[in-house]
Nucleic acid binder design. Sequence first.
DNA 1: AGCCTCTGATTCAACCTTGAACCTACATGC
DNA 2: GCATGTAGGTTCAAGGTTGAATCAGAGGCT
Lengths: 171, 171
Amino acid sequence: MSEPGEYSCDMPDEPRWLTDHERDAWLALAKLMFNLPSALDAQLLRDSNLTLFDYFVLSGLSMTPGRTMRLSDLANFVSCSLSRLSNVVKRMEQRGLLRRAPDPESPRYTVATLTDAGWDLVVAAAPGHVAAVRHYVIDGLTPSQIDVLREVACHVTRQIDSAPESARRPQ
Amino acid sequence: MSEPGEYSCDMPDEPRWLTDHERDAWLALAKLMFNLPSALDAQLLRDSNLTLFDYFVLSGLSMTPGRTMRLSDLANFVSCSLSRLSNVVKRMEQRGLLRRAPDPESPRYTVATLTDAGWDLVVAAAPGHVAAVRHYVIDGLTPSQIDVLREVACHVTRQIDSAPESARRPQ
DNA sequence: AGCCTCTGATTCAACCTTGAACCTACATGC
DNA sequence: GCATGTAGGTTCAAGGTTGAATCAGAGGCT
């Protein structure tokens, strides 16, 4: 597989390489993708013993009426696999941050409910986390840059959601 | 630790929460950070049995005169820990994609050199990878959006590089 | 009722990353 | 010369993610 010499047959005749302009933007974004998660993880782990992913899970629950959510909805909210969420939620339950229970409306679902300890932890973690997001991302950008950032990021996630398999052999 | 009620003392009196505008941009960027890496990984793994990180390592070497680089420079180039790079490079050497050798100029360093097989693999992988980057990110953006994307991403990485520990208790 | 299928959720093995500990080679100071 | 310190690189244990396999409940079809 992946023999060179033949990709001029099943690939577009001349692959559309990135221009310098596009390549600079892509490399900068790639560097952001590699480094920003660990920078935010570091702050949260140091100050609250939470990963960024943990924080999103807890804050998703905290914003919900009853502080309760079905695992499948929560997985969709933080856009991760059910398998990963199941593991994370199990650990958080052992830490006493939330409780799992069968959904009273349908035993087919499982709901997670934030405990008081979980609530207190997000509340305590939020200011430091927001400060880090401001420091690394938001502060120093103009409102119009922030606007374009949102447009671009939404565009990317739309592409991913709409065509998860369409990068396959782009004819 | 992380008791609520006291963060009004060692935190700014009123934490500067994100505005709706800022929050929308941040959540969109977060979703991108969570999903784009796996989308690009999926394409590369399916078509070339490489992760995005592998691809960056190989392409870093391929763009260098002699297709050779010191591990510490390479780690800096792909901005990762030496420990992680050491593991990745070891696996790639076992796959025959590159060779390790002591730097002839100073036995203190180790250099990695791309083999012919490694070169062929990046060359074969590049068109599909670039097509995926175009599909998920670049295509559909205007030149000015691409420009702002680069500015924003550079700003973020600058913040991370310049103040790796300054999110600590932002007085 | 019985069968098939789909979705929600969990588990497990394989693999990867992280961070600390460790080793080597060089540089500096006394 | 010798001790100390520092940077490059590797290794190892601990922990997290992935994807496949599995199980249970709900709905549709005959």
